[in-house]
Design a protein around this nucleic acid. Structure first.
Lengths: 196, 196
DNA sequence: TGGATCTGATTTGGTGCCGAACTACTCTCG
DNA sequence: CGAGAGTAGTTCGGCACCAAATCAGATCCA
């Protein structure tokens, strides 16, 4: 959702607040509330969720424009290389889950990476349905070279956050992921949603 | 990037930790560090950033599968309707900025929404380059109906977070967005990156 | 008046990404 | 064994999304 500041006409600065224009946020809240009449709404959740989306998109766009474009790979492509690097070759389905992509999407992206000579597919002899994907030598070279740069970029993106802020951020986001209830929650951390 | 838990073979539960398998995180850190040799890396930033992306994707997918699919609109389509609802009709360029989309993308999505009869385009008489987009009556009906449901969903996605957690989350994410240095930062909150 | 320039929107070409349908293989058990 | 149920991966149709190129209208001098 849109960054919920910027009501139509305001461009003035507002001094050294540590945060992005607080008044704008209040403006936005007022504007939304006006549309809703007396119906209550959860402004803080709205801000939290919409900022997740905006931050993710911005971080991705900038990463792709800056570092990733040097190697001609996308965010998702990088993720695949990274997973294969850290945890070695694995079969398609698992790789998809690990990269948080649908199987269909993964097939396409592996095609791209294969065309670029960065990964290799091989069928499993013991179960000929399965396909294992692994890094090629070139792929290994790329990720070894790329990861430190990427990680440096990640650090830059969290500039201004203390170490505990970063941990907190990760923690809160994990809770959000858990709340979506999408599978791969095989961990069942709080025991409230055990299937049976 | 992949949720950085789940090293290849571990499925056991790990008891009532308040957080997602802490040991797995440590495993992942160890695995990555092993690949890097003595080269240092910023694990906490990596976790923070990758979780932003994963949370955003999960929240979006689930929203589209559950509420949004009832109306046949996408996350981005919803954003457009919402912005137009709260701040009234506006011209294409501004709408794109507000929705955090490129102009080209916006054109396409407005086409879709127009086909669905939810928004209307009209040229501006005083400057015939400009196009103003606004909600149709149907579009207004949809967003009025949809927003409360969507907002309820947003609340659910932040379940388990205190009010101050939510504010904190939004705040930290705003800092990340700021760090990307993508424009629309006309606010310049800390004075370090003023163009001139 | 009329080119050069600027600005707003659309078009174009190409991925990424999804869910659903499909194909090929494996497993089960009668 | 062999039909049916299950599973792994790919294909398909369709948006979303971007950057770059293009088109059309406005503006600014000279």
């Amino acid at each position: 959702m849109a960054e919920t500041d910027l009501p139509p006409t305001r461009t003035e600065n507002d001094g050294p607040t540590a945060d992005v224009g607080l008044e704008r946020l209040l403006d936005a809240e007022r504007d939304v509330q006006a549309k809703l009449g007396d119906q209550p709404f959860d402004f803080e959740s709205m801000l939290a969720i919409s900022n997740i989306y905006r931050a993710a998109a911005a971080v991705r766009r900038v990463a792709e424009r800056t570092i990733l474009s040097d190697y001609g790979i996308s965010w998702g492509g990088f993720t695949i290389l990274w997973v294969l690097w850290v945890w070695d070759e694995m079969e398609t389905g698992r790789l998809a889950a690990e990269c948080d992509l649908s199987k269909g999407t993964l097939t396409g992206m592996v095609n791209t990476l294969e065309r670029q000579g960065l990964v290799e597919r091989s069928r499993v002899a013991s179960d000929r349905r399965k396909v294992v994907v692994g890094l090629s030598d070139d792929g290994l070279g790329v990720i070894k070279d790329l990861f430190p740069r990427f990680n440096r970029y990640e650090s830059e993106m969290t500039a201004g956050l203390s170490a505990s802020d970063r941990r907190q951020l990760a923690r809160l986001l994990r809770q959000v992921v858990r709340n979506t209830g999408e599978a791969d929650n095989e961990t069942d951390t709080d025991g409230t949603d055990t299937p049976a």
